[in-house]
């Protein structure tokens, strides 16, 4: 069942256009949103969070249009916009004390559990956190209010291979608990490791949106890895 439906999303900038983007994010699955730098991943994600206003198109969460049910929908989603840190000089516990008031579903027990699991010190400030820990801090907030879907913009970017691996393992664990994960990346091995579905964007256009197995079946040549397939597709598009 689709919990996010993006239909014919269009956003025009003077030097870049998102062209009729359409894809679905399915319940309880990990969807990797892949594309090279500048392909339109962040613009798409910002549109999904209503931070950017598309020229046209529809975005539905849980069958509800985002434009009419923004607050209601945002209570059920978690997000991380890369390595941006909020209130870098405030202690985590002080930030959390404010955030929790916005969510009726805030679960203190879950908060303590994930705080321990992610090895986060709530007396630290975001400024004192590494890039990986910043992503974990965002995940901590999302999971403490029982988010049903996580929307993450390049969460693995800037992480060392160990932290990346650890984070992808967390995604898999969350999936087992029924949380859907939609994350953008330009690192194909992230998809190989944990994605169930792939949404591939190139120059503002969706090239493919389907389960990873189908993608490999349809686009991969003999013995080609996912990385080789995407690189070949990207090159042929650039050369066309």
């Amino acid at each position: 069942m689709s919990i996010i439906e993006v239909r014919n999303l269009k956003k025009e900038y003077p030097s870049f256009t998102l062209k009729d983007i359409s894809f679905d994010v399915k319940e309880g699955r990990i969807t990797g949103f892949i594309g090279r730098n500048g392909a339109g991943k962040t613009t798409t994600i910002k549109s999904m969070l209503n931070l950017v206003h598309p020229n046209s198109g529809e975005i539905d969460f849980f069958g509800l249009p985002l434009k009419d049910h923004e607050a209601e929908i945002k209570k059920q989603i978690g997000y991380s916009t890369g390595t941006v840190s909020w209130y870098p000089r405030k202690k985590i516990k002080d930030i959390v004390a404010i955030i929790r008031e916005f969510y009726e579903s805030w679960d203190d027990e879950a908060y303590r559990k994930y705080l321990k699991l992610f090895d986060l010190d709530e007396n630290k400030t975001p400024k004192e956190l590494s890039e990986g820990m910043k992503v974990k801090f965002n995940l901590l907030i999302a999971l403490s209010h029982g988010a049903k879907i996580l929307i993450l913009d390049e969460p693995t970017s800037g992480l060392d291979p160990f932290s990346r691996d650890e984070l992808l393992d967390i995604f898999t664990e969350l999936k087992e608990h029924g949380v859907a994960v939609f994350f953008s990346t330009h690192i194909t091995s992230d998809l190989e490791k944990c994605a169930d579905d792939i949404v591939y964007i190139s120059d503002g256009e969706i090239m493919a949106a389907m389960p990873k197995k189908e993608f490999m079946k349809e686009y991969s040549k003999d013995d080609e890895s996912l990385e080789d397939t995407i690189l070949r597709m990207e090159r042929s598009r650039t050369n066309a």
Binding site: K75, Y79, W86, Y87, R89, F102
Partner: peptide
């Protein structure tokens, strides 16, 4: 502004 407050606020479950 230094603390990215506006973007943080826009992501909270409240109307703009």
């Amino acid at each position: 502004r230094e603390a990215n407050d506006i973007e943080f606020s826009a992501l909270l479950p409240i109307g703009k």
